[in-house]
């Protein structure tokens, strides 16, 4: 286990790729904070997004209870013999990492029993079976090794669901690939990750009280990305907003937006979808901001048109 955040992660970007390719089931809490520059230190997801396609399983956590629970499950997921990949557990820097919340803890012996012992089949320190780790891997084999890694990531989805079921049996707390909050009959939906989901739930409740059918899809498992399941869960809404707490600086939208929309497209789901970049460098995200997004979605449902899918909220000026 190790833990990191922001530029500490950026410095080790090279190792991130090497750790996953060596199939080392490291568990690493990642407290999401802005990547320099300029130097900021406050919450956004630019650190996590910079490693999103590096062969790490990525779990996101709305609050401290989820961060704790995900961390316990992460060991079982990463160390599963069908997976053998590192896992990072994300939570929002300062917003949840430096806040005090009451959470339910497992007793040490119960937690230890759930996590279990790591018993790798092959390992560097086994003197009875000397192995080479990280050899030069040229044109003849690297492709096949990367394919094995890609398959491990595909396998991870079912393993995550199995481990989550076991965890539910132990604690009564339910986890899946994502959380659907009042999404079943929703007409407008927000897709987001981490603490913003908490703020969004409050707004959904307020809108529901006013008779507006708002819903939320909160991503828990970002890698492997459950594209098909997300497309299916969103298939009955009329307009969607995807919130990205990191700008991809690519002139076409944030990373989560790209993932969600391409997932919908390949699953034959064509629903008006907009992207909002928000909360960069720890900019506060308020209930009013989220309400504004739902209001925009109501307008999109009315007109059936999305004039600009790559939007911002909370930005002071646009000069």
């Amino acid at each position: 286990m190790t833990a990191t955040s922001s530029n500490g992660l950026a410095l080790m970007w090279e190792m991130i790729q090497i750790a996953s390719s060596l199939r080392l089931p490291i568990v690493m809490p990642l407290v999401n904070r802005a990547i320099s520059g300029p130097l900021n230190i406050h919450c956004d997801h630019s650190d996590a997004m910079a490693i999103r396609d590096s062969g790490w399983i990525m779990l996101f956590s709305e609050n401290n209870q989820e961060a704790y629970d995900n961390l316990l499950m992460a060991h079982r997921i990463g160390e599963h013999e069908d997976v053998m990949l590192p896992v990072t557990v994300c939570q929002d820097g300062f917003i949840t990492s430096h806040s005090i919340e009451n959470i339910e803890l497992l007793e040490d012996d119960v937690a230890k029993k759930f996590v279990g012992e790591y018993t790798p089949k092959h390992y560097l320190l086994n003197s009875k079976e000397p192995i080479s780790v990280g050899p030069m891997d040229l044109q003849a084999y690297l492709f096949e090794h990367k394919y094995q890694e890609a398959n491990a990531m595909r396998n991870a989805k079912n393993v995550i669901l199995e481990v989550s079921k076991d965890f539910e049996k132990l604690t009564g707390r339910t986890y899946s690939l994502f959380e659907k909050y009042k999404l079943e009959d929703a007409e407008i939906a927000i897709v987001c990750m981490n603490s913003t989901a908490g703020t969004t739930k409050v707004v959904v409740d307020e809108l529901r009280n006013k008779g507006i059918k708002a819903g939320l899809l909160k991503i828990r498992v970002y890698r492997p990305f459950p594209a098909e399941e997300i497309a299916k869960a969103l298939s009955n809404v009329k307009a969607i907003a995807v919130l990205d707490r990191a700008d991809s600086l690519n002139a076409c939208g944030g990373a989560l937006f790209t993932d969600v929309t391409s997932g919908m497209f390949v699953n034959n789901s064509y629903i008006p979808t907009v992207n909002y970049i928000y909360g960069i460098g720890g900019r506060d995200t308020t209930a009013k901001d989220i309400e504004g997004v739902y209001n925009d979605l109501i307008e999109i449902v009315k007109t059936g048109k999305v004039d600009n899918p790559y939007r911002y909220f909370g930005l002071k000026n646009r000069s």
Binding site: E14, M15, I18, L22, L124, L125, N126, S127, P130, I131, S132, V133, G134, P135, M136, D137, L138, A140, Y141
Partner: peptide, 17 residues
């Protein structure tokens, strides 16, 4: 000395970066 699937090290060997 360690080009997959060969190596010249009759011991445990690791290269990272």
């Amino acid at each position: 000395t360690c080009i997959y699937p060969y190596n010249s090290w009759d011991c445990s060997y690791i290269h990272t970066a």
